[in-house]
Design a binder for these strands. Structure first.
Lengths: 359, 359
DNA sequence: CATGCCATATACATCGTTGAAAGGGTAGAC
DNA sequence: GTCTACCCTTTCAACGATGTATATGGCATG
């Protein structure tokens, strides 16, 4: 059986509380006592029982992170960033995958695991504006993404409209005139798809270009396979286009796959722009232009806000911070896939000095 | 303040233990009582305090998963599989990233987070045979990977030698005669690199082909960037080769990037075979042949063994299971990158019916 | 010399739950 | 009518740590 503080105390000839004081580097502990206790700890191989401490303190030192799927590179990278930030704050991260499933997303808010955490960072993909009441919970909750607006939760998102507009304008500046959109969610009002499409339309309008609805291609899921399928359909429909703006990088990668299979050259015949700037983007062929969404900033703010909420959970209501609503900065990262045809030089391109387009 | 069992008990007019019995679906609870208690629970919005239960039960219901980096697709997919398995067993997963850093890997075995878990699944990349004593710990620990053999821990790995041999033989069967190896770790005796290289050499020998040491290219890290760099060097060295066997898919993707930049056609001029069969492999251009390492099986066995160890932790020593040493099955997944030149048809290839080469 | 302060250490209750053991009641067996 | 058996429920004492209040002794202050 593992040793307890009592065991250590007995061996060191002090009280359990003194052992506790040593372990927690309490200020007023005599050096001699500290050494005695430390010796006893080492001898017994004592390890603090964190569960007992948690019970006493009413906190677990863990935060939850609920996201659709770790396999999706964007979320793997987000999880990475969140874990790095959490570690700085001395917190552990309990990850839950929702698979974008409605029931699982609800489960995240009420399940067993939730009870083991002090708070939750949640990136919903299935729950939306209609479910806003579900986010009224009595534990610290920070929402990420674009599914929900106007709830009473802290919320971190990015400037989707502006970012999509900037990406589209970049394609226009490169000479593209018939820019297809891959990954639309028709009928959606909020959500990444709707907002990015909005930015796309705004850019066309600003440039005085018409929107051809045939170029707006829906795709419910944003995976490589669906991106390839949507592009196949677009090509087979016979509609002309000279650029593709994919609403995320996975779609873009699938699209490039499809273009290649149809012997359409990127960027010679068609330029491609993605969204998320996942690490893969620098290694596709050709390298993929994309929008970098400020992942680190999102993770940092999310953890910091959550931490502050956990800390104030036991404070009087009137001392609490107002609800945060944060828009993370973005950057355009142009790479080979969106070069003007005449500028192609075939060189392998890593991230080129990105146009900083701070919000 | 959150309600406790006492509060519920008072409201329902029963004892706290009865509330506990209801919450835990204890067999002998009168239906009337159950309803009374349930009503009180609903009315108060009572939620079980998991920490208190954990303290009482001496278990946390969490397992640790220590891996190098979630951003590496292989580990993201592994984490996914582990979480799915853990959920089936009613366990949560606390992920820690080591970044292949020695101190961090040691920290994983002794840090704060470890104390919050019932056991650990650990895939070390920095610690090796010299550190075998470190794995002698008094909590359930399942090791993954090829860094350590012969320790007294449960250990799950794959048949690296056989898998690498099969992949190399596949290239040979496709007509390749000068097969370069990317990602070697010279001097290493165990570890994925050493074992896979061993399989590579075995295949060449079996086919009666000589090993040209100039074709064995080292690369300490197995990332896309290093794969590209190693391939650049290989090309610039002027050594002839007609195939590349990359020791993981990231290296392979980097290699294909480099080959493309040098206008070398895959598989026309050079065939490429990777290792790990990450999801990306089906979407590279050309699609990447790879070895599928039985990730799901690894995850399943790891969680099941760990769970069994946790369960028997309080059992007498003589009733414990012997140490497990499991070799997961693998499969070859040939795709476009290793087709014989004359067989190329340019079609987009998803996972083609893979040659099952069970171990 | 009395007073108060500070550093140090302790005793005790407590966080919220559950296992063990025991109590009360009803029903069927003899 | 008593006994046994079983169902349902309760009481009590943990699990292992820490906050609060308190005790002790030394030292400085007035």
């Amino acid at each position: 059986m593992a040793a307890t503080m009592q065991d250590v105390a007995r061996l060191a000839g002090v009280s359990a509380k003194t052992v506790s004081n040593v372990v927690n580097s309490h200020p007023h502990v005599a050096e001699a006592t500290r050494l005695k206790v430390q010796a006893a700890i080492d001898k017994l191989g004592y390890e603090l029982n964190v569960t007992a401490r948690n019970l006493r303190k009413g906190r677990t030192g863990l935060i939850g992170l609920a996201l659709p799927e770790l396999k999706l590179p964007y979320f793997a990278e987000l999880a990475d960033s969140v874990m790095v930030e959490a570690e700085k704050a001395g917190l552990g991260v309990l990850i839950e995958q929702t698979n974008s499933d409605r029931d699982r997303e609800i489960g995240v808010l009420h399940g067993q695991l939730r009870l083991m955490t002090d708070g939750l960072i949640f990136s919903p993909l299935a729950l939306g504006m209609d479910d806003i009441h579900m986010f009224k919970v009595d534990f610290p909750l920070v929402l990420l993404g674009e599914r929900v607006f106007g709830s009473a939760n802290d919320h971190i998102t990015m400037s989707n409209v502006e970012a999509a507009k900037a990406a589209t304008l970049h394609l226009i500046a490169a000479g593209c005139r018939r820019i297809a959109l891959i990954g639309a969610h028709p009928g959606e009002v909020v959500g990444s798809a709707a907002l990015r499409e909005q930015g796309y339309r705004a850019a066309l309008q600003e440039a005085g270009l018409p929107v051809d609805e045939q170029l707006v291609r829906p795709s419910e899921y944003w995976h490589r396979g669906t991106g390839a399928a949507a592009t196949d359909e677009l090509i087979e429909s016979g509609v002309e286009f000279d650029a593709l703006f994919a609403l995320n990088d996975a779609l873009a990668m699938g699209a490039m796959h499809s273009l290649h299979a149809h012997r359409i050259d990127v960027p010679g015949d068609v330029s491609v722009f993605g969204f998320d700037d996942i690490e893969d983007a620098a290694y596709t062929r050709p390298t993929l232009s994309s929008v970098s969404p400020g992942r680190d900033q999102i993770a940092r703010e999310a953890v910091q806000i959550l931490e502050a909420r956990v800390a104030e959970a036991h404070a009087p209501f009137d001392q609490r911070q107002p609800v945060h609503r944060i828009y993370a900065d973005f950057e355009l990262v142009p790479r080979e896939s969106s070069r003007r045809p005449q500028v192609i030089d075939g060189a392998a391109g890593a991230k080129t000095s990105p146009a900083k387009l701070a919000h």
